[in-house]
Amino acid sequence: MAAFLEVQNLVKSFGTNTVVKGVNFAFDKGEFISLLGPSGCGKTTILRMIAGFERPTSGAIRIDGEDLTHLKPNQRKLGMVFQAYALFPNLTVGDNIAFGLKIAGMPADQRRARVEEMLRLIGLPGFEKRYPYEMSGGQQQRVALARAIAPKPRLLLLDEPLSALDAKIRVSLREEIRAIQRDLGITTVFVTHDQEEAMSISDRIVVMNAGNIDQMGSPHEIYNRPATRFVAGFVGQLNTLPEATFGPNRAIRPELISLAPRPDTDTTLTGTISDVGFLGSVVRLRVDVAGTPINIDTFNSHSTTPPQRGDTITLHLATKDVLTLGA
């Protein structure tokens, strides 16, 4: 089966500054894809080229085999959610959601039914008469989502839709977005710089670094088998191990080091605790192993108090968990 969303050798330069440097990917219908990378790596630019707001310098974008490159944004039948909500301030919630339907010429009674259906889907039934400024940020962004999916777009594009929200709503809304996306089976491209966000909701993640794709894969693959040093460092926490014992470019995740031996551990390190961070369910220890700082995550326990600063402790780890970092 051919891929549903296909991006081929996509390049974008602004003047002499090339910000997207030959990107390729292909995804199936119904997948939730995240473009993940630090700020400025070209994620938004790729999304905007898919939407049609930027013209690629070269390369092709296809949906269901159709080349989009020469279509205007209003001919592409896509939905998009922006970081700053971008609801139309002069229109009610109902009219915002119905905007695309009206443009497409849907009769008024069908529009009303669809708006009602959308409001139920986003958990805001009965809000059609409200104005955007009367609603919280989370509610506004849900309306923006409803507006984007009401015309049944071929593809849903989300550009950091949660970045403007407080931490709590960010988590609940991302779960809601994922649930709605699964429900409708709509192919979705989600741009974020937050690796935890990308990990928690994506089928597949595209990790970007300075205009290139460093790795593509499921969250599990990316976390456990990072392809480059950049990916390993960007996705999750990482400890570089002392070169004297392990050789160059060897690293391990904090949660794979334990304070007590496990059946699979075969190596020990001794160090002094330099810092103890209590994060709730997790206690993060910073240990100084002969000058190399190593972070360890252990689960909080009711019965035992965490180790203290200055304590000398032995760390246990398994050689099979040690990552070798490439370029």
Binding site: A51, G52, P73, G79, F82, A86, F88, F99, I103, A148
Partner: peptide, 8 residues
């Protein structure tokens, strides 16, 4: 852009 992507 929000209006454009909605087809306007």
């Amino acid at each position: 852009e929000a209006a454009q992507i909605a087809g306007a």
